[in-house]
Structures are given as C-alpha cells and as structure tokens.
Design a protein around this nucleic acid. Structure first.
Length: 421
RNA sequence: GUGAGCGUAGCCCAGUGGUUUAAGGCGCCAGGUUGUGGCCCUGGAGAUCGUGGGUUCAAAUCCCACCGUUCACCCCA
C-alpha cells in the first residue's frame, strides 16, 4: 500500500475547519494592515535559498529538496517564504512602487529533516514582509501584527522575545568579541558548539547544554556592541512597541539561524518552552535583497507555521467555527423516485441550495442514518406516492416533524427557512 | 545526521513466562415496521499481527535488518 511520504500528511475533511479558520484569520489580518497576497511557485532556482538557509551551501544540499529538471537546471522545493517574495519583488520591479511594499504569502514549504511533532518535511507557512524602508515603526508594526494574529486566533499565554543583532558594521565586531570569549573555553564546549564557534558563532548563545549555558552567561552582549545607528533603531522599535502597548521581553541571547537577519529579531512562542514550540518569528533583513542581486533594500518580516498554530489551538481547546453543511439530504425509494430525486437535487443546486442526494440502493433507514451522521438538518423523502402526487416529504431532522409539500415549492421553503432561521 | 521508545482491523486497543477460532470498544453494513435517522437489542463484514529474513517441532510473542511513527539532540515554522 502506498503511504504519504515521510514527514508529509494528508489534511482530512475533519481537519479542514482548522485550516480554513487560520487561513481566514491570516487573510483578514493582512487586509487590516494593507498587506497584499503574493503567490510564488512551489519550486525555485536552488541558489535562491543559499543565503536564507542557515549554514549556507552545506545545509542547502543536506536539508533541501533539490532536483534537476530535464534541461539540467538545479531547482529546489520552496524552503521558506522570504527569499521567493524578495525574488518576485526584484523580478517585477516592485521597487518602483511607493516604498515600503507590503506583501504576504501562505503556502507549503519543504525541508528534508527528521520529522517529529511540529516539524515536518512539508509544512505550511504564513508570512508577511514590508520591503523598502528601514523605519523602526515597521518593525513594531510587524510585531504588533504577529501579536494581533495570535490573539485573533484565540491563543493566549504566548510571549514575544526581542533582540537586535546589529548590522554588517557592528555585528562582525561583536562576533569577534564572542569568538575571543569562547576561545578560552573551547575545552568545555560541547561538540556542536565547537562547530558553531567556527561556522555560526551567534548560535553559541542558545545552546541548551548546561555547561555551554554557563559560558554563554558571561559572554559579551550584542547590545553592548551595536553601532550608534543600530542602537538608535533598536531604541525606537522598543519605544514604538511600548507606545502600542505590546508586551515583549528583551532576550540578548535570541539569535535567528538565518544569515541574512540584521538588527531586529523576534520570536513568538508559548510561555512553556519546549522543543518545536516556536509559533513564529521574524526580523529585519536589510542585506538579503542586495545579496539576491538588487540594490541595498531594507526589509522586515514575519513567518508562522500553520501546523504549529493548529497544534496550539487544539492544546488550548479553542472552539473554532464548524464548516457549513449541506441544507438537505434527498432520500428515495425505487427507481422512479430516484429519477425524481436526482432531478430535484439538480434543481435545488441551481437555485443555490446545497444538497446531497442519496446513492446506491440503501434502505430508507440506511439513507436517513447517513443524513444523520452527516449532520444535515433537513431530509427530503421521495417514494412512489410522492412521485404520483408531485410532492415530497420534508423532514426536520432535529424535531422529527414532517410535512408534505408540493415539488415546485421545495426551493422556496428552504429560502424561507434560511431567512427566518 | 545522532540517541531512545513504539508499530495488532478505518480508529482506540487486549493479548508478549512460545502452541488462542487473535479478544473488546468506536465506526461501517444488515435486521428488530410493509416507506423513516439519533437511544437500545441482535447479527455480519473487516487483521497476510509494519515489511523481509533468522532461531524453533511451534513465533503477534525471541533475534537481526529495513520501513514508518513518536520523543530528545540538531535545526527551525
């Protein structure tokens, strides 16, 4: 038997209410803030993702779905949302619009990793980006949006952590200081951190091992190394957040794995920290667009994982609206009645009334059982007698009340019901 | 990529001191009214016990490998 590939999953009808709920909240949030939907291809030139995957080219090869098409071009399944949005921004000359340009996206992303709860090979991301202006008010807006998004979903008890990791003027000086600090402790570092010291020193700060944490505690802080511009920018972001009444916690050890982040970084997660707990995160990436071949263009954005959001909706037992059900179920007895039934179904749909017609040759009992388990409120019954008298029996499935109505008046009866109900 | 746990019908699972018609619940189908659901009762269908190999007279049960899944690391959404 075939199975969905490892790390992927089918989203069954019973789950769809959650997806619709989250997607609609996302869309209305973006509408509220003036962010416009941009849909990008599911695969891209594989090199596009090189700057956006931590560890650079090594991780690109190991963690991405890369394949060659028949022309030999190296393509990659979308690994994350930001780089494609920036590519589209450059490709279509969106820099000619009044800046900043505000865009959002929602769709699948792929990473070849070992799956576990909240981590999949195919998952879905919702994200938004404000491209083309370095105004710290945009950083604050993006963070406020994230908070409003989670609140609108009904989630509570999450926190927002904030930090600044500087720009390409001050960050290298800080990394230098960090290296000097760690150099005297190499013997006590875990193997992972030894590798990080060479490849990705910022990551040293959030190693979870107790021995490494100790060293991190005495490490120099990025905030002490920010250049005056970054310092001022960071101050402004905080000032705006306070003005907006957005709670946040400064976390000078918060770094984001991706190389392109500059200045503001933030992460939203449940207060109870655990693996795979981050609901979303983002920050400023003032260097990315230049790295992709554009002019230096500042930008800030946020991305969240839909599967993790749904996981938290379930954990917090948040009630979500049910998907709408068909108005009526049509049952029949006998071949002549069946013809009348499928014709009636067609006509009702023509007037915009959603119906399910029975199929097969189940007993009336079986057909009503089906209507019941589908949760449909009205059943229309057609037998020999109804065919002869040009009527149908309308049964209210909640009360059990039945009445005989002329065939021609069925649609009108439902329209009346909808208005009064 | 590393370490650990788990894998019995569509779903939840009993059964692992070796020999069972592999049990139960949910769901599904049918019957209990000749044309009527939900509750109840009765019956039925549905499992090569994840896959492959090995040990044995005998394996769901022991061993190995692979696959899948879960948890942690890693990484991140």
């Amino acid at each position: 038997m075939y199975k969905a590939p490892r790390g992927t999953s089918d989203i069954l009808p019973q789950e769809q209410a959650y997806w619709k709920y989250v997607e609609e909240k996302a869309a209305s949030l973006c509408q509220l803030y003036g962010y416009q939907l941009l849909t990008t291809p599911i695969f891209e030139d594989s090199h596009l993702f090189a700057p956006t995957v931590a560890g650079g080219q090594i991780a690109v090869d190991k963690e991405m779905y890369i394949f060659e098409d028949r022309s030999g071009q190296k393509l990659a399944l979308r690994a994350e949302g930001t780089a494609p949005v920036c590519r589209a921004y450059l490709e279509h000359g969106l820099f000619n619009l009044p800046q900043p340009v505000k865009l959002y996206y929602i769709g699948p992303a792929f990473r070849y990793e070992r799956p576990q709860a909240g981590r999949y090979r195919q998952h879905h991301q919702f994200g938004y980006e404000a491209i083309g202006d370095a105004d710290p008010a945009l950083d604050a807006e993006v963070i406020e949006m994230a908070r409003r998004f989670f609140l609108s979903l009904g989630l509570s008890g999450f926190s927002c952590q904030l930090n600044s990791i500087g720009c390409n003027l001050c960050q290298p000086k800080y990394i230098e200081a960090l290296r000097r600090h760690y150099a005297s402790y190499t013997a006590w570092l875990c193997p992972d951190c030894k590798a990080r010291l060479l490849r990705n020193p910022l990551r040293l700060l959030d190693c979870k091992k107790a021995s490494c944490q100790k060293i991190a505690e005495t490490a120099p802080r990025i905030t002490d190394y920010l250049c005056s511009e970054c310092q001022a920018h960071f101050q402004s972001v905080q000032q705006y957040l306070e003005a907006l009444g957005i709670p946040f916690q400064l976390n000078y050890r918060l770094v984001r794995g991706l190389d392109y982040y500059t200045r503001t970084v933030f992460e939203v997660g449940p207060r109870e920290e655990g693996a795979q707990s981050a609901l979303g995160g983002g920050g400023r990436y003032d260097n990315l667009i230049e790295q992709l071949g554009g002019k230096p263009t500042p930008a800030v954005g946020f991305a969240a994982g839909i599967e993790r959001i749904i996981l938290n909706l379930k954990r917090q037992k948040i009630a979500i609206p049910a998907l709408s059900k068909p108005t009526a179920f049509i049952a029949y007895l006998g071949e002549v009645a069946k013809i009348r039934a499928i014709k009636l179904a067609s006509e009702l749909r023509q007037s915009g009334i959603a119906v399910i017609a029975a199929a097969g040759d189940k007993s009336l009992k079986g057909q009503l059982r089906q209507a019941n388990s589908l949760g449909i409120d009205n059943a229309l019954l057609i037998g020999k007698a109804e065919v002869e008298s040009q009527t149908v029996i309308l049964r209210d499935m909640k009360s059990g009340e039945q009445k005989v109505i002329p065939l021609a008046e069925v649609a009108a009866a439902f329209n009346r019901k909808q208005k009064s109900g």
